[in-house]
Design a binder for these strands. Structure first.
Lengths: 339, 339
DNA sequence: CTGAAAGCGCTAACAC
DNA sequence: GTGTTAGCGCTTTCAG
């Protein structure tokens, strides 16, 4: 008797059903709001649910229905990042609205770390996955395909996604900015980035930037790619580094706004004025830029739109509704007065 | 036949076991790394796991073992927030290391939203919960207690937690800062905050601040609490608002560093110098402050330490190891030159 | 070191 | 509108 009661402290459906004087099946129908019960029955069941403090068991429900769970796995480079934080927030909000739960992961731009996470998450039989970053290992791809679940790859536009891609065109962002900077009459142009050990999409913007310069017969005058995470301070000392090496730059393109803002402060600390002495441009429309006395020249992006679109596309696919495979999230070069 | 094969595309333990020429039980032991098998057996099983691309089914495993899952629910006010982003990152990292999965939620400082999330998460039979924010509804408390799972309440120190509390002492932070500001000779002191509709811990710091002023027979000269989320721009226009109403303030305490930085920029935009014309103080040691020409007077906190400590405390409790119920995460007033 | 039997809590499928 | 039967894939328990 005692031995049998180990885990029986938690109320289960049977007890609710018995208390309500109906069968398990009927109680189950009421709780899932499936059809096939009278109003009277519903009231009886819900009354007992309330009285007994019944908490449904999704583990058992998922298991019993032999389907995937309502868990969605979302893996981003870092959870502490204003850009990805906003993506997570909008993604989670949209998923929750549709009744899905978010299980998170941080891969730190390492495909191997991502693979480990994928292996793990797949064992929860998720309804779908949202991945970010550039590359996945072969095993990652195979695992996902073998499970046959929908995947949305976010952050970068990907013309041949595993399943669905929702992203910015980072290459074009860099390309466009290079042309703009050249158009402003700059010639000695540098680039300051971070994450050298595990490059993210900043590397792609840099590529587009360099390509555009090349097409105008200009070379990148210097570049400084730190072995550090992007941030205000990284921008500050990255600028210090590059200017110490190459003093005559007349413009710098930064990996993102946080670094660009750090760069502006370094220049000011050295008595240089922006944009007279040196032009500065960033990427990402960071909120911090809104309080600067100058308007930062940058590429405006909506990480919130990205996250929401990704979540909605995933849900549509899960439900078998038609979805575009490749969805580009628009970006816009916003000229300021820092370049 | 066809009807029976609906979901059999996914390999299960039985098939692995059969292919390896052992029983399900033996294969299960190998995969869980439980004892009771020979090296030879292990190799045979793992070979088949590899060959067949077997992905374990945690839903079934959790269900079969009649225990809680290895899911941990973590609910913070916002996922896009540098402070909570860092908490999430360190929490998730620590939990993953111990083999737990993080299921997230954002309650936006609303106890009702939190309650809905708790109800939902509990149906996944999580091993534990990490909650943040100030108050929980009665139902939330009851639900958690009825499930009998460990909970860590983070962010604010709580001397009578549901289970475990790991947090900063926000009241003391405000108190200490008030005494410091008074000690610097300021008299006409204002406060600028945000989140008026759903106050978080900033409200508690404000209380401590006001209490300390009172004990020195000083009143808060003015306060401006915006109906908006904290951020650089909120600090900027919050400062504009308060100074337009009360022009003769000689110091302002901000809800956090983001707002303080916004405030500094507003003052500069008006030709006021900090700290000569007006003193400014914040809270939270935000990275952005590192690039300012001045060092911001603030309270240094480690959200990373908080997250890690919380995760470790939770795991210890889950494992039945001894843990302190109340763990205070230290903070330190760091005098800068903005006040 | 290995295996057989029972059962976890729920839902699908089919009766009534 | 409601109940019955079977079974999801794994682990626990107990027997060898």
């Amino acid at each position: 008797m005692a031995a049998k009661n180990k885990n029986r402290s938690k109320v289960n459906l049977s007890e609710v059903a018995k208390a309500a004087g109906v069968s398990k099946m009927t109680a189950s129908r009421v709780l899932r709001n499936a059809s096939g019960f009278s109003d009277e029955t519903r009231d009886k069941v819900l009354e007992q649910v309330e009285r007994l403090g019944y908490v449904p068991n999704r583990i058992a429900a998922t298991f019993g229905s032999e389907q995937t769970s309502t868990i969605i796995g979302v893996c981003v480079p870092h959870l502490s990042s204003s850009l990805f934080g906003a993506v997570l927030d909008s993604t989670n909000g949209a998923l929750a609205k549709f009744g899905y739960q978010t299980m998170i992961g941080a891969h730190e731009n390492s495909p191997e770390t991502e693979e480990m996470w994928v292996k793990n998450i797949l064992s929860w039989r998720p309804a779908g996955l949202i991945l970010s970053g550039h590359t996945h290992t072969r095993t990652t791809r195979e695992l996902i395909k073998s499970q046959g679940i929908p995947v949305v790859e976010i952050w970068n536009l990907n013309t041949s996604p595993i399943d669905i891609s929702v992203g910015f065109n980072h290459f074009d962002c860099g390309h466009e900015m290079a042309l703009y900077i050249l158009g402003q009459g700059h010639q000695r142009i540098g680039y300051v980035g971070a994450d050298s050990a595990a490059p993210g999409m900043g590397a792609l913007r840099r590529k587009g930037f360099v390509a555009a310069l090349k097409s105008s017969s200009t070379d990148l005058a210097a570049q400084e790619i730190l072995n550090d995470r992007s941030g205000f301070y990284a921008g500050f000392y990255g600028t210090e580094n590059i200017l110490n090496r190459v003093g005559d730059l007349d413009a710098i393109y930064f990996q993102d706004d946080a670094m660009a803002i750090g760069g502006i402060f370094y220049c000011q600390s050295q008595g240089m004025s922006v944009p007279e002495d040196i032009g500065i441009a960033g990427w990402g429309s960071m909120e911090a830029a809104s309080v600067l006395p100058q308007r930062l020249t940058t590429t405006v992006v909506s990480t919130q739109a990205l996250g929401k679109t990704a979540a909605e596309a995933l849900i549509s696919r899960v439900r078998g509704e038609p979805v575009n495979d490749v969805i580009i999230t628009p970006t816009r070069l916003a000229p300021g007065n820092t370049i």
